[in-house]
Design a protein around this nucleic acid. Structure first.
Length: 470
RNA sequence: GUGGUUAUAGUUCAAUGGCAGAACACUGGUUUGUGGUACCAGUUACAAGGGUCCGAUUCCCUUUAACCACCCCA
């Protein structure tokens, strides 16, 4: 029942136009920016001072992707809106009120992606990746967009790191994905975490369970909070992780999904737990763990910070989505994956004082004095750079004093001084910043001498940042 | 989307219904081509708009934004 790709795509675009013409925004509601010098609400600049954390996340996740055989996939940040509406679920808040949806000049109803999985699946089908040897493991990372009220670590534009594996239903893949998630936080320096797992079953046993749960909750309906009364019809599973005391009490004695799985799902879950035991992961079964997106089946999991599953929320999570590819019009392909929010994990890294990436720092400062020297210094810098010697400079500054001040602040071990006299003689002064000793050397021999000095001083040229891969 | 707290310099914080202050940071200087400390000097702010008032950064309203709790999720 594989629909022709072109037809599938065209059908979507036509639907997209017909369905849901955009609600007209009243003219007076359209706001011009009061201040141009301000980021949009919920959007954030990643400043140089925060880059070490971002770089750490990039390095660690790319390394894990490589080590566990995940190939990188990048897909556009925009897709037909219906790709998300249909696959994430029409009733979910994400598509109902949080998507950035708009009509293009060409009349296509499109959306900025609110998550990565749907686009990855689209790409998987569109490019016939089912012909690759299974499992097809994909790593993706990039911005996603949700129009919601911002808070610390939660933005309208945030970045996710995603690991997905397609085409393998063996629970060993579930275990491996969870292991990757665990390794990821470990390598990021968040040592104290707990993994919670649950199984919400396949569509069949899930529906049976859901009916059971609803009838149970109906009997207690009067005691539920307002939100949960609403959830009861929209997404009853969500009642299970309501934080209201009265609801969680009711939830605590509610029927549990793990007790009502079909044979296949139960054995899948049982084998997964055996693998997790074998991996010695700090996991626990949380029968109240349900995830917000409609496409999940069987295994769902979350990574929590701290030893106890206390008040703190999940850092990130994921699960199995065995039906998604097929429902999108692809071959029946089981899949599992997880997504991690970068901003949120960085908040946690800072909280636990995790190590961030330290870029290589220049050990040498190049100072110049006088018009001729200034002119020559530009080229000298390049000559040294070509030889792999990393330097700092402050060409715009005039006085030697201020340049040495900078050199000192940057912690340079050596300052090269090129003055008027040296520029004429074809020499350079090498000044040891620790001792203050100076020597004048021939410009020709400079590269060799520097290299030698850096070596004997036990300084590695281009020494690598301290990205701990223990 | 709901409720709450907040908004003063690049940063962290003061004070005040009547000329807005510190620390750190930044720039320069303390003689002519030499850094860390010290000293001196300088740049930079009342989020935006309206109202009350002789006068508002201060009181009130609106907007915008940040943060917190919901909601939801990463």
């Amino acid at each position: 029942m594989l629909m022709p790709k072109k037809k599938l795509l065209r059908e979507k675009s036509v639907k997209a136009i017909k369905k849901n013409t955009p609600k007209k925004i009243k003219a007076e509601k359209i706001k011009e920016a009061p201040l141009l010098l301000q980021t949009l609400r919920g959007m954030k600049d990643v400043l140089p001072q925060d880059q070490p954390y971002w770089e750490q996340v990039r390095r660690v996740s790319e390394r894990l992707a490589r080590d566990y055989g995940f190939l990188r996939l990048d897909v556009p940040i925009m897709e037909y809106a219906n790709l998300f509406v249909r696959n994430i679920g029409e009733g979910t808040d994400i598509v109902e009120k949080e998507m950035y949806t708009f009509i293009t000049r060409g009349g296509d109803k499109v959306a900025l992606r609110p998550e990565l999985t749907a686009g990855n699946c689209r790409s998987y089908i569109q490019h016939g990746m089912h012909t690759l040897s299974k499992p097809v493991k994909l790593f993706s990372t990039g911005p996603v967009y949700r129009y919601e009220r911002p808070q610390d670590g939660r933005y309208r534009e945030h970045h996710q790191v995603n690991f997905d594996a397609f085409g393998e239903q063996d629970p060993i893949l579930d275990a491996q994905i969870i292991q990757v998630a665990y390794r990821l936080v470990q390598l990021l320096g968040i040592k104290s975490v707990q993994i919670q797992v649950n199984s919400i079953g396949c569509p069949v046993c899930r529906k049976n369970y859901r009916d059971l749960l609803v009838s149970y909750l109906e009997s207690k309906k009067s005691k539920l909070c307002q939100d949960c009364k609403r959830r009861l019809t929209i997404n009853p599973l969500r009642v299970l992780d309501c934080k209201e005391d009265k609801c969680s009490q009711i939830a605590s004695i509610a029927p549990q999904s793990v007790d009502h799985l079909c044979d296949d799902c139960r054995s899948h879950f049982k084998i997964l737990l055996e693998y997790l035991d074998e991996l010695e992961l700090p996991y626990s079964i949380n029968p109240h763990l349900v995830r917000g997106l409609d496409y999940y089946t069987k295994t769902v999991f979350e990574v929590w910070s701290g030893e106890e599953a206390g008040k703190q929320g999940a850092l990130f999570g994921g699960g199995r989505y065995d039906r998604l590819i097929k429902s999108m019009g692809g071959e029946d392909t089981p899949a599992i994956g997880f997504g991690m929010g970068v901003e949120r994990i960085i908040v946690e890294m800072k909280r636990v004082q995790a190590k961030a990436y330290k870029p290589p720092r220049p050990r040498i400062f190049l100072a110049q004095l006088g018009i001729l020297a200034k002119r020559k210094s530009l080229k000298l810098f390049t000559e040294l750079e070509k030889n792999g010697i990393l330097m700092a400079e402050s060409f715009g500054r005039g006085s030697l004093k201020s340049q040495l001040k900078i050199a000192n602040r940057l912690g340079a071990e050596i300052t090269l001084i090129l003055g008027q006299k040296e520029a004429l003689d074809g020499t350079v002064i090498i000044k040891n910043m620790a001792t203050g000793a100076q020597e004048t050397v021939d410009m020709e021999k400079l590269v060799d001498i520097i290299k030698k000095k850096l070596k004997t001083d036990n300084v590695v040229i281009y020494h690598n940042g301290e990205c701990d891969h223990s």
